[in-house]
Write a protein that binds this DNA or RNA. Sequence first.
DNA 1: TTGTAAGCGTTATCAC
DNA 2: GTGATAACGCTTACAA
Lengths: 352, 352
Amino acid sequence: MTSLRGGRAGGSSPHRKRVATLADVAEIAGVSSSTASRALNGRGELADSTRAAVLEAAAQLDFRPSALARSLRTRTTFTVGFVVPDVASPFYAAALKGAQGALEEAGYRVMLMDSEQQAAGEIAALRTLLDHQVDGLLVATTGLSPKRFDEVTGGSGTPCVFFDSIIRRAGAGSVGLDNDPGMRLLVDHLVEHGHERIAILAGSLAETSGIERLRAFRKAMRRRGLAPRAEYERRCRWSVESATLATHELLELSAPPTAVVASSAELALGCLAACRERGLSLPGDLALAGFDDPYFGDLLEPPLTAVGYDPRAVGRAAASLLVEAMRDGDRPYETVTVPVELVRRRSCGCPG
Amino acid sequence: MTSLRGGRAGGSSPHRKRVATLADVAEIAGVSSSTASRALNGRGELADSTRAAVLEAAAQLDFRPSALARSLRTRTTFTVGFVVPDVASPFYAAALKGAQGALEEAGYRVMLMDSEQQAAGEIAALRTLLDHQVDGLLVATTGLSPKRFDEVTGGSGTPCVFFDSIIRRAGAGSVGLDNDPGMRLLVDHLVEHGHERIAILAGSLAETSGIERLRAFRKAMRRRGLAPRAEYERRCRWSVESATLATHELLELSAPPTAVVASSAELALGCLAACRERGLSLPGDLALAGFDDPYFGDLLEPPLTAVGYDPRAVGRAAASLLVEAMRDGDRPYETVTVPVELVRRRSCGCPG
DNA sequence: TTGTAAGCGTTATCAC
DNA sequence: GTGATAACGCTTACAA
């Protein structure tokens, strides 16, 4: 196959026929490039014959307009930036997929950046995206301060919609989850199973979902007459490993909890892993319920009781909000909340 | 908050200070824009004092060069296109993450497209990416013909590296998995557990991994003196649902298999789900082993025996190959194969 | 209905 | 060393 690459005159690839430009199309069609442009974009009135000629020339040359040149001129890229702490997380991957679909329908492409759960990464991502003149931003922040966020994006006026984790007083809208009711569902359910010593694997408190879920947990506990105990609140990074560690710590307490609530799918998985390492069986030795119902939640051992929601809907909603904001810069701030529901499976103590 | 948006002179956003351009920097520094450009890019020799002045002006204005304009001029975007059948699949999500890391290090950004497991989607994705003049392509093809692929990308000469699924005689390189040895590992192991009636949940045969794994399965069976039976070969789409269905069909055969090999994580999960629906218990009623070890494989019931590998390494390797190809267009075609290993857990019949 | 010309924000070539 | 000037490929007033 290397022999195929033999030809070398003019460029690295033998097949590279200099790609056609608008001027080429115009020339072949025998018109000026402005006319060609109009014909191709359906703007202005032109003679049917002219339009046909241009279209034919374009087809003949397999003309593809340069998105770069067009964007430079029109100051619109039809590209939106998507920033998440971790694309490999099932939640963000699904949200991305949902957003993709909605954006594509509206004619937008997505440029993806992974902040690696770090403020510095997020800032770099935003900078890059703005340098590329994205028309809008979809971000699940790792917890930037409003001030910092403004410093980075302030000048551009690029609309931004937050999802999952929000920056206050910033952006054109946000979509979040029903964190408070969700947590309450979890706690109430565990309490109904007779638990009182309930611990929480909380996520990073730099992020909205981390904070809100922890607060909601405390509130739900109090509402049930249960005092939240500091040693039962375990702050983790949003990773399986981090939760495994935290669960071990919890289980080594002199009065270990009888149930735990995990703030995310990763954290629930970590809890499961820790129990397996210790030879504990759920829900007998420890009951577990999580916020986030991963698509394989049903196939785990034990099947995971969790608060579920449609992660794609989150992405989709955020994308819709953004599209609206991009089309009309002066819309009021809008918030969407995606509903959640309790999925009872065995890990909490419910029958299989 | 709406009240904050009051100011209206000059634009939709009150804060939008017209972003600085190179010309602005040049003016403040008291030099021409060519000099400013050189100073900022460290090209050519210039007086230290001049460089300092330019740098200061740039800092003062918070100057950010327009990636668009630069790309238009230099014909390089430092962007690579990434095309996969389904971003939400854990494998592709992980591969993406791996590629991201490697590309970012080399100074590239990624533009992501989801082909939705369809040739049409893939073609559209490639077109869009090329319209944006990406410098390179990373694609897990859904099975385009070499001809079709060439028609779409041919003119551009843009280097392309395939991963997971390959198009023959196309692209600058590819990274795949050790499909043949992997399948053999799976089949041999099941045979050692005493199975003879082994079925396969094969993926789409339009894709390399689907075909190669099916072929490898047959080969491994024959090597063990077992004749592959047509009714034990079930072709699926790469989805949990599709595999659930196929498993039910398998189980309704008059002589159902005693073991099944799944060609991907999704397919293994589908098999698990079907068994659960039928109240069957693994590995007693049916043994299962899969190609692909999802990160939660250990926490399933039963824990999944599988051929595992590092999905991020796949992305990373593909990205490295691509970076090399982008830097030097005339490198010979290169292939990387990522090794696999058998992870014995309980679903095959091994002790927990 | 169509053409001319200016310009989007850079970098590259060539003088000075 | 530094500055004009001409692209890069497109859109869009403004003229004709």
